[in-house]
Design a protein around this nucleic acid. Structure first.
Lengths: 229, 229
DNA sequence: TAGATTGTTAATCGATTAACAATC
DNA sequence: TAGATTGTTAATCGATTAACAATC
C-alpha cells in the first residue's frame, strides 16, 4: 500500500471550493484514517469512564494531536460539535465508526496460546472496536483441546477450513519468531489479507497483504529521544 | 510535547546550503525520530536473520516508508551507504543508535505480573533496543515474592525506593484499568518521565510527563479501512 | 450577557516523490 | 563494462498552526 494511491479526503469538494458534502468522501488519506482511529480509541475509553461530552482540547491532551487539527479532521465530515460545549462522546464514536466503516463486527484468528496470546484473548482492546477473537491456534499438542476463556485451542492444521467457516479477516501472530513466517504463508494461502505480527520475525508477504508489526520498543525509543534531548 | 517545539533536523546546514555536518543536528523532528526508530527495528530483526547488507528498497518493503525518504533521512547524517550495494546492517544499526542516543542501557519497571506482564518480561522486543526490565511490581500478595524469570515480584509500596536505586527511566503499566491512574501518579511522584500504558484507562499526567498508550486496535482499525475500501 | 468552544480561513512549513547523476 | 543503488535536487502536495468570527 503506497501513500500515492490514496486520494486526499478533501478531494470530494465541489469545483467551486465549497464545503465538502457531509457524506463519505472517496477515500481517507492515510494520516486522517490513523488519527480518526486514535480519536476513537480515546473516545471509547472516555465513554467507559462516563464522560458525556469532550472538547477538541481534551482530545488533544490525550492524543497528542493539535486541537485545531482535530476540529479540522472532524469538520470535513459534518458538524458534529456544539460551540461552547464540545462533542458528544457517544455521537462522535458512532460518526467515526461510520467514517472508518468499522461499525460492524470483524472476526480475528489468534495464533499462539502463550502469555501474549492469552493476554490478547482476554483483553478488551480488540473487542471494544468490534474485533472478536473467534479462533485460537497453537501447535503444542498439549495445549490443543484445552480452553482459553470460552474458546478451545485448535490445531493449526485445520487453519484454512476454520478461516473460511468463521469468516476470519485478520490473523494475529503471537508466536515465537521461528513459527511466524510459516504461519503467515498459511494465512495468505487461506486468503487472509491483514496480518498482525507480534513476533520478532521479519514476515514477508505478497504485496496485496498488509503486515503490521507491533512496535512497543520503537515507540519507547523515540519517546526516550525527546526525553534525553 | 508539541511539534512546534522541535527543530527540523536539517536546521544544522551551513548558510550556503551545503550538505549538513555529519555530526549531530540540534534535535530531530518528530517524524524523523519515529522513522529512524522504525528502521532500527527492522535492521535489528534483519541482523538476527544474518543479513549483512540491506538496500533502501528492502527497508521500504518492511517499513512501508518510501525508499527515497529512507535515503533522504539517512543521508542527512552522513554517507552510510555504498552505491550499487546498499547499507551495511551492522553499521547502520550503530549509526542510528548514535543518532537516537540510545546506544546505552536504560532501565524499565514493569507493573502487573499477569499474562501481559509476563509476556513483556520474557520478550526480546525491549531487550533488543537496550531496555532492560529491572523490576516487576504487583499488588497481589500471593504473587509478591515469587519469580518471573530471574526477577522477584515486588510490592508496589516500595516503588519510590526501587526506582531511585535502580535508576529507572520508564514505567510500563500492564495492569487492570482501575489500577492504572493510581500507579501513574506514584510513578510521577517518583520522578519517572515516560509511562507506557497497556491498560484500557485514560491516564492523566502533568505536561512534563509523556504517556504512550498502546494501540493495537487502532492500527488494526485503519489497516482494515484500507482493506475494505 | 459572558464565557467557551467550534468551524474555517489563510499562511507556513515539512513530507513526499520522481528523476537522475554519481559511483560502487 | 553493465547493473544496481545511493545521494541529492527540485517540484508538489498535505499537514500544521494561529487567529477569529460564529454561535452555543
Amino acid at each position: 500500500m503506497s501513500v500515492s494511491d490514496l486520494a486526499n479526503h478533501r478531494g470530494a469538494e465541489g469545483p467551486d471550493g465549497a464545503a465538502p458534502e457531509p457524506g463519505m468522501p472517496e477515500r481517507l488519506s492515510l494520516g486522517v484514517a490513523a488519527r480518526l482511529a486514535r480519536y476513537l480509541q480515546v473516545l471509547t475509553k472516555a465513554k467507559k469512564e462516563g464522560k458525556e461530552t469532550i472538547s477538541s482540547q481534551e482530545l488533544s491532551a490525550f492524543t497528542q494531536v493539535n486541537s485545531t487539527q482535530i476540529r479540522r479532521d472532524l469538520s470535513g465530515f459534518g458538524k458534529f460539535g456544539k460551540r461552547g460545549v464540545g462533542y458528544n462522546v457517544d455521537g462522535l464514536v458512532s460518526q467515526i465508526r461510520k467514517i472508518l466503516r468499522t461499525a460492524g463486527q470483524h472476526n480475528i484468528a489468534l495464533f499462539g496460546a502463550g502469555h501474549l496470546g492469552r493476554a490478547i484473548a482476554s483483553s478488551d482492546v480488540f473487542a471494544d472496536h468490534g474485533f472478536r477473537v473467534v479462533a485460537i491456534f497453537d501447535t503444542d499438542p498439549e495445549k490443543i483441546g484445552t480452553k482459553v476463556g470460552a474458546l478451545e485451542i485448535r490445531d493449526a492444521a485445520n487453519l484454512k477450513q476454520v478461516i473460511e467457516d468463521e469468516d476470519i479477516v485478520v490473523g494475529v501472530l503471537a508466536v515465537p519468531s521461528a513459527a511466524a513466517q510459516g504461519l503467515a504463508e498459511l494465512l495468505v494461502k487461506a486468503g487472509v489479507k491483514i496480518i498482525f505480527n507480534y513476533s520478532e520475525a521479519l514476515v514477508r508477504v505478497p504485496p496485496e497483504v498488509t503486515v503490521h508489526t507491533s512496535s512497543p520498543a520503537v515507540d519507547l525509543l523515540y519517546a526516550l529521544y525527546f526525553y534525553l534531548t
